[in-house]
């Protein structure tokens, strides 16, 4: 589905990505975990076309998209749910979704376009019934969890095959995080391929097919979710386990 090879990117003189390579196969849930400032968001943004990579290459479904504009990448079937949701606060839930459906309406045109887009909205409501209840409410008045649901719902409106999510659990209560991760799993069950950047390593590794560990601009470890959960370096650095508790666990088993 997606392949990035030795991607480099940065802001001005600051090189944030130092040659990151990763792939996502169709149907996988792949996560990138790592500390703050490791370059995870920059990586997603450069895959989505929001940041221009200074070196390296990206292919989407076999087609070269390195440095392509975001709308072309979106049209090729890859959407991004940005960090901090980036909703249109003064618009209603439904209007936000309709905005996301712009490309589909244009593709089909006229009545057919409106019909297709409406079907997509229904399918988003199906995934998040809460959004249906609040469809006429202003996005700015939604709770954090509902806003995240809306951001995911909006990203679905362009009918992507690959959905990239940047820190979907950020700022949410644990119970709400559970709902969001359950939604990611059901998106996967609906045939979507998922690439998700997450700080909440433990929760995401439990649902991920594979994961990458990012450190200062490089991907230093790759493995299945279970492998990374069991990895001592990952436990120490990202799962908040102390040395003593690892030792206890070892004795206990």
């Amino acid at each position: 589905m997606l392949k990035a090879r030795s991607l480099e990117a940065g802001y001005g003189d600051l090189k944030v990505l130092k040659g990151a390579s990763l792939h996502v196969f169709p149907g996988e849930i792949v996560t990138i975990i790592g500390a703050n400032g490791a370059g995870k968001s920059t990586l997603l943004n450069s895959l989505a076309g929001l940041v221009k990579p200074s070196a390296g290459s990206v292919t989407l479904k076999g087609e070269e998209i390195t440095g392509a504009r975001p709308e072309r990448i979106l049209a090729r079937g890859c959407s991004l749910v940005p960090e901090g949701r980036k909703l249109f606060a003064p618009m209603t839930v439904r209007e936000n979704l309709e905005l996301g459906g712009y490309a589909i309406r244009r593709r089909f045109g006229g009545r057919r376009g409106r019909k297709e887009s409406e079907a997509d909205i229904e399918s988003a409501f199906d995934l998040f019934p809460r959004l249906k209840e609040r469809q006429h409410q202003l996005a700015g008045t939604l709770s954090g969890g509902e806003q995240q649901m809306l951001a995911i719902g909006r990203s679905l409106m362009s009918r992507p095959e690959l959905i990239m999510l940047d820190e979907p659990s950020m700022g949410l209560a644990p119970l709400v995080i559970r709902d969001i991760f359950a939604a990611i799993v059901s998106l996967s069950a609906r045939g979507k391929t998922i690439l998700v950047v997450e700080q909440n390593a433990k929760a995401i590794l439990k649902i991920a097919s594979r994961g990458y560990v990012m450190e200062t601009g490089n991907l230093v470890l790759e493995g299945t979710g279970a492998e990374l959960l069991a990895n001592r370096d990952v436990q120490r650095a990202y799962l908040g386990k102390e040395y003593a508790s690892i030792a206890d666990e070892r004795e206990g088993t």
């Binding site: 090879r5 990763l22 792939h23 196969f25 490089n218 991907l219 230093v220 790759e222």
Partner: peptide, 17 residues
């Protein structure tokens, strides 16, 4: 092609570590 991608990723990670 996919195998080469996997190899390059893992090689880079290994050399890094």
């Amino acid at each position: 092609d996919d195998l080469e991608q996997v190899q390059v990723e893992r090689l880079q990670a290994t050399v890094n570590r």
